[in-house]
Structures are given as C-alpha cells and as structure tokens.
Design a protein around this nucleic acid. Structure first.
Lengths: 330, 330
DNA sequence: TTGAAAGCGCTAACAG
DNA sequence: CTGTTAGCGCTTTCAA
C-alpha cells in the first residue's frame, strides 16, 4: 500500500535505522550511503508518517488554536498569520471556535490533547480557566494571544490596550471633542482600553462618566443598539464622539448614525479598535486603533515554538504598540 | 507520565484488549466488567491516544481544509461551518491557506498526507490539478466546495452559479436597468455567473457586450479600480447598474461611487455575490446573491464523511440554490 | 467472556 | 559507519 521506511530500507539495501537517520539528519554516515538512501526516497516518493514518529517520541507538529469565532474578521486575520508562521516552522494548525461556550472549550481542549498537539494558542477569551491551568501544570506549552489575564501563569502576547485607549482619547480630544461616549465589551481588553481612554481624558480635564460607558458583546447589531440607547437619552448633552472598543461595534454606530441622517464625522465622530478589513469597507472609512496583527501572530508562534523546543515556559509578556489609523469617521 | 491503556488495564485487573473493547464499544463482555473498566477510565481520567489508534489502523479523525485565504470573510465563514459540522462527527480540521500559490498547494497537500488526514476539502480554487488527481487515484477522500471543475472526478458541492447570474439579472432588469456592467474574477464560478446573467439579459432583449465585462481578482481595491475604468469611458452610455461577482468587488464599486459623490442606488445600482458579513456593514447595505454557506458547509462535511466511512466516492454533484438578498444598493 | 500476541511505522539506544 | 532491537499506545485476530 503506502511506502514505509521498510520499503525504502530494503530497496536501498540498508537498515531502517539508517533510513531514519538520513530523514532526521541525525548521526553520521558515509556521504555515499546517505545519497543512495536519498535517491530511493525520491524514487519511491516516500513520505514519513508523522503519526508513527509522533508515537515514538517526537512531536505531532501541530498546534491547536482556540479562538471565540474564526468567522469573525479579527480572528480570521489572526488565524491567517498564525497559520503562516506555524508552517514556516513546519507546524500545522487545527482551528477551534469556542463561541465562548465552556462546553465547547472543554470538548476542544480534550480532543486537542488526545491528538497530542505540541502546543496551544488561546486567543482573546477563555472561560474554563481551571482547564487551562491544569494544562500549564502538566507543562503543556500554551501561549495566550490578545488575552492578558494575570491569573494565568503563561506567556502572553497582546497589544498595549491601555495605550490604545490613550491614543483614541488623544485623537478625539485633539479634534475638540469633550462629550464622548464609550461602547465596550465585557472583556479584560475592553476594560484596559476604557481605563486608558478615561485616564487620558481626565488628564485633559474631561470626565467620562460611568453612565456614558455602554457594555455589550461584539456585533454590529449590538453596536447599533447602543447607539440608539445613547441618542434616545435627551436628559443631557449628547456626545459628539463615540469610542467603540472594536470595529464591529463601531460599524453598528455608523449604521445607526446614517439611519438618523447624521453627518459623519461632523455630527458624530467615531473611532473603532482592531483595524480589521471591516474598517476599510465602510464609507467613510473607519478611523480605528490598529493592532499589529501580523507581528503579534509572528510573535506568538515564535514564543510557543520556543517553549515547545526548550521544554520550558519562558513566561514572558509582550505588549505591542497600537497605532492610530485615521480614516473618514473622525 | 500520561495514563495509557496499560495503566487502566492493570488497575481494572483486565487485559488491554478488554479495555480497548469497552472504549470502542466492540465485542461482547459481561456488563460487570465493562462497568468496572469504565469506572477506572473515569477515575484515572484516561484519554485514548488518537495517534496510537491511528497508527494501528483507525483514522486520524482530522480533515484538511484548503482555501485560498482564511482571512477572506467568505472563506472564514465557510471554515466556521465546516469546523462545526466536522466536530459533530468527531473530526478536527487543519486549515491551510494556499494563496493560490502552486508551491503552497503542494507543500500543504504533502503535510496533510504525512499527517494522514482522513479526507480533504478543497474550496474555491486549486491550480495543481494533477496533485489532486493523484490523490483521487489513490482513493483519498476528497470533496470540492464552491469549485465546480469538470476535469476533476470527485464530489462537488457548490452554489448554482448560473442561477445566481439569473437572479442578479432579473433583479436589475425588474428595476429598469438596461445599461449594465459586470465585474468578475477569472474563476469558473465567475464565468458561470456571467453566463447566467448574460443569458437572462438577452432573453429580455438586452445585450451585454463583452467590453462591458471587466475581469480582475477579488479585492476592494480592484473593485474600485474597475469602477474607475468604467466611468472614465465617456464614449457611450454609462451603466446605471453594476453586477460584481463577489462582495469584495462590489464594495470597491460602492467606494468608487461614493467618492464620485454618486447617489446609490439612484445614480448607480450595485449588486454583489456571496452575502458575506461585508454586505451587512456598508451603508447602504449591499444587495447581493447569497450562497447558503451554512448548508453548503454541512453538506460537504456529510459527503466527505460518507466517503471516508464507506470507503468509496459517491461522486455526486450538489448545487445549492442562491438567494437574492435585497438591501440598499438597488 | 476474556486475554495473548502480532503488528502499525518510526525513533533511539546499544552493539558490532 | 551501520544494523539490531526494544519500545511508543492501540487494534485486532485467534485461542482459551
């Protein structure tokens, strides 16, 4: 059926050990032998079984990627760069969308373990912390991406959310806005973004009242709903600008504003976060705080691979610099 | 270290064969024994190694998914539904973005084979046909999605592109448009969509000249570029409507039109194809022809699993019904 | 009803 | 420099 190491060995007139050695570039041997074997390998189109080598001690050369939802543009962009860099290191990646559902989280973690993936990347959120903790205790390589949770003792790669908040605030303030509303998620990231935003506002003598912070989950629909809520309150000065903690939410706001025939950015300025493809497809384009997704993806893979190879958690925390991308909504 | 079938067997006072049987629900045995073993499995939190069972004959319970680019919303949506349905059948999926690059195609196909994935899903495009053909010859389960290439003798799941063209044409014509331009990709799907579109137009006495069909690759930038090309030609009647063969292109057109301060849909009507998330985030929303992504994803997985289980290619061709989704651009 | 034993394809000492 | 051999964890006859 399929050609195995035995077939190659036999045809090359050597032992399987020798074949194994040339495949793995281990041990020494006469250049002549190595060439002979190489040729046979080519001839027979021999492809070593990763299953077998994994079973006998080596890794599976595959990574598990857990994200809330791969169909969300932010995560699919992340997945793409991770996939690319993983493959540069000879690793494949199995994707898993958790939907932030503990059941699914558990199920996926389970399967990935049974498949003996060499390492895990957990992005953005994870509820079953204990399961993660158990993994870490068992020395399973695991790195968190865009999810800076102090309660987990592992390496973390993320954008500097606080600074992102700063930049959003600075931009809006420099444009003269003083009445600002915020729409956020319930995540850690959002909290930090708000914190930075708030700090910066206050340093310029502007206070952001708690009642002007709206919390929801990421979707355009929810963004629009928040917009509606904000503008139906007529009790006090309406905001001239909105900071949405991600692009999806920001787009919901754009839609709400358009529907109300408000002019953007004159009647209302909007700034998002992430810089996904969605920020480029609206008209006007969405001003947003960009996460350096490409670099972040590269870094997670590097750190994870290192932990897999070195067999030890370097346990580092890397914060990337967010960048303001000005488009038409401000 | 990790608990193996031997550990369980020993603790339960039975042989590994027995343990194997209870895991796989094969063979008969006293209910008592089975319970005893089950308990030990629970107690020790035993997780059978998929590697090992794969090596000894069973499958790897993983699928390989090849798409041009997982970060493209259309593919990430597809990936999501495939992931979901695969997991319902106990399968994981390894994602691979080919970038339509033959090198990458080959490399990925290679790795996936060495990983002994149980089956392949190839979506939308693939240049190295011979490699695919070789797989099929070796009876490797393989199903094509949204890629209806007659030269490959495998099962195919896709939307009825011809019909999609019909629907787009009917809609535009019913709105009174007679001068229409088309922006397409170089793919088979696009060809069919154009064909259907054209046929329908002609049946209503409208001719679509070849010079009004613009071909490019999918991106908003290219869409915009085509728009510009179309509207800089002043030699003859300008179109009042544009049919773009996918949402990305359509959005480029929207951007171009907005920039020229044209009113949509009054000055120019636009219709896309795919109904990705992008169609919902523009203002006005993009009228488009929807592919039933969820159903298609479900179907590919079903067909693929069937071929894996039955060990025979059913070699069917399933066409799904496209649906017109009217939003603000028409 | 249960178990012994022969693989599956490869790696890694250890010998020669 | 090269080969022998004992696993890796599980499935699957075949006996008992």
């Amino acid at each position: 059926m399929k050609v195995t190491i035995y077939d190659v060995a036999k045809k090359a007139g050597v032992s399987i050990a020798t074949v194994s050695k040339v495949i793995n570039h281990t041990g020494n041997m006469r250049e002549e032998t190595r060439k002979k074997v190489m040729n046979v390998i080519e001839d027979m189109n021999y492809q070593p079984s990763i299953m077998a080598s994994a079973l006998s001690g080596k890794g599976t050369e595959t990574l598990g990627l857990l994200v809330p939802d791969i169909s969300n543009p932010f995560f699919s962009m992340i997945a793409r760069t991770i996939e690319d860099h993983a493959h540069e290191h000879g690793m494949s990646v199995i994707m898993c969308s958790t939907d932030e559902d503990p059941e699914r989280e558990k199920k996926y973690l389970d399967v990935l373990q049974r498949k003996q993936v060499d390492g895990f990347i957990v992005a953005s959120s994870f509820h079953e912390k204990k399961l993660l903790r158990k993994l870490v205790e068992h020395d399973v390589p695991l790195v968190m991406l865009a999810y800076d949770d102090a309660s987990l003792d592992v390496s973390k790669i993320s954008v500097d959310d606080l600074k992102g908040g700063y930049k959003a605030a600075d931009h809006l303030v420099s444009l003269g806005h003083r009445q600002i509303a915020v729409i956020a998620e319930h995540t850690n990231s959002s909290k930090l973004r708000i914190l930075g935003f708030q700090e910066r506002l206050e340093s310029q003598g502007i206070t952001l009242k708690e009642e002007n912070i709206y919390r929801t989950t990421a979707s355009t629909l929810n963004g629009k709903a928040c917009f509606d809520k904000i503008f139906q309150r007529k009790d006090h000065g309406l905001p001239t600008a909105i900071f949405a903690c991600n692009d999806l939410l920001a787009i919901g706001v754009i839609q709400g504003a358009m529907e109300k025939r408000m002019s953007i950015p004159d009647d209302l300025a909007i700034i998002g976060f992430d810089n996904t493809i969605l920020a480029t497809t609206t008209v006007p384009g969405l001003t947003t705080i960009a996460q350096p997704i490409e670099e972040m993806g590269k870094k997670v893979v590097e750190v994870l691979i290192e932990e897999i190879k070195e067999d030890v958690s370097v346990n580092q925390r890397v914060l990337f610099n967010p960048e303001l991308i000005v488009r038409g909504t401000t």
